[in-house]
């Protein structure tokens, strides 16, 4: 079985726009606590030590510079997310063809 997954023009443009928006909005993003963090703070509840030590905590890699560190983490996340989705979709298609 040959799977043909090709990325059409609109998909490439969209991906480029996503990366561009990420680059532009990183310095503009708010560092304030989000709604849930704010509620927990107000009620005096603190996060415990996480049960798992994530390799890139807080979307930041220390490679010199706040923007670069966050942007690199974001690029890794975007690429990883797209790759996992493509992988899972291919599994779905294989499952479909067998059933």
């Amino acid at each position: 079985m040959v799977l043909k997954v090709s990325f059409p023009r609109w998909a490439k443009i969209s991906l480029a726009v996503i990366i561009l928006l990420l680059a532009v909005f990183i310095p503009l993003a708010s560092a304030f606590p989000d709604g849930l963090e704010r509620v927990a703070e107000t009620l005096g509840v603190v996060e415990s030590e996480p049960v798992w030590h994530a390799p890139i905590p807080d979307y930041f890699i220390n490679i010199g510079g706040d923007w670069l560190g966050t942007f690199t983490a974001g690029l890794i996340g975007v690429a990883l997310t797209a790759a996992v989705i493509i992988g899972v979709s291919i599994l779905y298609l294989k499952f479909k063809k067998h059933s």
């Binding site: 994530a54 807080d58 996340g77």
Partner: peptide, 8 residues
């Protein structure tokens, strides 16, 4: 991915 890789 957020939980495993980014601790979110």
């Amino acid at each position: 991915i957020q939980g495993l890789v980014f601790g979110d």
